[in-house]
Design a protein around this nucleic acid. Structure first.
Lengths: 149, 149
DNA sequence: GAGAAACCCATGATCTCCCATAAAGTGGTG
DNA sequence: CACCACTTTATGGGAGATCATGGGTTTCTC
């Protein structure tokens, strides 16, 4: 499976468009020809998650595993569908971030994209930098010794 | 598994390219024909880690072992993906070091490569030399007798 | 028909790919 | 073991492709 790596920063134009980093577009094209994404507010404050449709299916499978009428199912369905927005890139590889999500992330001009393997994050740059810093700070507490063999 | 030995120093050209030492390239080719690497900032200040993709997969396995929504998982994903950049050598065996990493290491013109077994380090030469010296200085305090079998 | 959204074309900056070359390394041979 | 031919390595540079971005025009919606 293709994966999203690295950090990139692009800028919103006056029409609210922003280029998806080329390396992310390449990763998307790898698994499907339509370059389309699901955007949703992350449980991490200030962060937007962006998922390829194929990877999003993983969550949909989790939903299917829950019983009908289970309150958890209702809650998960809300998260997966009601708060999520499908978006497609234009011919130049740009997306328009829905106003509700742009506000959730406090986007102004700059937009940071952080690879996370099977999906990526969209942040207002300073908030994203703070999140990165916090991640680095907590890492040594559990990253001890060698990786699992 | 391929192994990286020794130290080498090459130079960045005006386009930001630097040759990966030939012996390291040979070690990489040993396990896959595409000469590609994952670069990431080390927890050691000023140091860039370079991993063959196959060795990097072990870290990714460590990530997969953590539960969804676990803050540790979020932090580790940042380190393994958001801060990591896959790079491929050109036909001449050179890589371009991403600006974010070049800055982390304070790279100017010279670039030192230190073998570390399953991965290697990239340093600004004087910082790398200092790290080596510090390593030598502390080694006798714990390196007693025979290596572990 | 007004506003917004989608579509199309344009452009400078950056990046890749390809070819070139000097220096260093390697091996063979007398 | 001295010499030479060939290979590999590290590095330089040019041309074309790609990327991010701007902006105009058509199409859709209500």
């Amino acid at each position: 499976m293709s994966q999203f790596f690295g950090s990139h920063e692009n800028r919103l134009d006056v029409k609210g468009r922003v280029s998806v980093p080329a390396s992310f577009r390449a990763a998307l094209r790898g698994e499907a020809e339509t370059v389309s994404l699901i955007l949703r507010p992350s449980h991490i404050p200030g962060c937007i998650e962006a998922w390829p449709r194929t990877a999003y299916a993983r969550w949909q499978a989790a939903l299917d595993a829950l019983e009908d009428f289970d309150p958890k199912r209702e809650a998960l369905a809300t998260l997966l569908y009601s708060e999520a927005f499908p978006v497609d890139t234009d011919a130049q590889g740009r997306i328009v971030i829905p106003a509700e999500l742009a506000e959730h992330a406090g986007l102004k001009e700059g937009v940071s994209f952080f690879g996370r393997g099977d999906h990526f994050h969209i942040w207002e740059p300073s908030a994203g930098a703070a999140f990165k810093k916090a991640s680095r700070a907590m890492a040594p507490s559990f990253l001890i010794g060698r990786p699992v063999q």
